[in-house]
């Protein structure tokens, strides 16, 4: 009962904080719009590159361009959502350096809610737009051949939620590491941006080690790629049964437990070392 009330309060405060952050970002509309367009442009050339590679090679491991666009779009949608929500995680370095993390500790609200509520970054909508539009474009090209029933739609939704969570958790791991290193952790970019890059292409194309990394350890592939393969009627990874493809999004759970434990460890370390 108390837990439920506390959860409700957290949710209420998150909405309140996020709403305020959006409101204050909307104050500078023209610069915001430009940032969105800019990001669309920067990431747009990435998709252009993919398109041009298709012109040369015609297929990627048997995948057609619309199929690739669906995968690419879904991965980028998830990444963009996580990137917009994770602003507070990204700010851990400065928060620790200037002592403002103490301020968060003095407030009666879970730390993660406070960090997530710090800002919902609308600037990241450029990637989101690109992700959604490439996904939509790819899907419209495929619709005549694949069937999208209720189970497929549910799986798609699960993949989107789980994929967003995985990226968010990668950022959380990064934030937890900041307790030790203080300086930002560029090497974690290998897993966030690198993971996004890697997951935008069918895992089937990689060597074994990378396939294992992105299904078993950092389960972006398990959460997005595998369920999508089931929907598109493609082989995800050789030798993997269909139920494992469908259960892919569940891989976010152990990873989430790991990330939260690491975060908890970081907070404990902070309060015994005192920053």
């Amino acid at each position: 009962m108390k837990l439920a009330a506390s959860l409700r309060h957290s949710l209420f405060m998150y909405r309140r904080l996020a709403g305020l952050s959006i409101q204050s970002q909307l104050r500078y509309r023209s610069s915001l719009l430009l940032s969105i367009v800019s990001q669309f442009l920067i990431i747009g050339v990435e998709f252009l590159a993919l398109y041009l590679m298709f012109q040369r090679f015609r297929s990627f491991m048997g995948w057609s361009l619309p199929e690739m666009a669906v995968l690419y779009g879904l991965v980028n949608t998830c990444f963009a959502l996580a990137d917009a929500l994770a602003y507070g995680f990204d700010q851990m370095g400065p928060l620790l350096k200037n002592g403002n993390f103490d301020r968060l500790l003095l407030r009666p609200l879970p730390l993660l809610v406070q960090l997530l509520g710090m800002e919902v970054t609308i600037r990241r909508a450029g990637r989101l737009l690109l992700g959604i539009s490439t996904f939509g474009w790819g899907l419209s090209g495929l619709l005549p051949t694949i069937q999208l029933g209720a189970p497929a739609l549910a799986l798609l939704l699960a993949a989107t939620v789980a994929g967003t969570l995985v990226f968010l958790l990668i950022f959380l791991v990064q934030a937890a590491c900041t307790f030790v290193t203080i300086e930002g952790l560029e090497f974690m970019n290998a897993f966030s941006y690198g993971g996004q890059q890697a997951a935008s292409h069918p895992l089937l194309g990689y060597r074994r080690a990378i396939q294992v990394l992105f299904t078993g350890f950092i389960p972006i592939g398990a959460c997005i790629y595998l369920p999508l393969c089931l929907i598109l009627g493609r082989v995800g990874l050789p030798g993997l049964p269909a139920w494992a493809h469908a259960a892919g999004p569940l891989a976010v759970l152990p990873f989430g437990a790991f990330a939260l434990a690491l975060w908890h460890l970081g907070v404990c370390r902070y309060s015994s070392a005192g920053g």
Partner: peptide
Amino acid sequence: FFGLILCMIMEAWYRS
């Protein structure tokens, strides 16, 4: 890491 990923993607293109 990026180099490795990009090279494997390239390898897959050539294989396909």
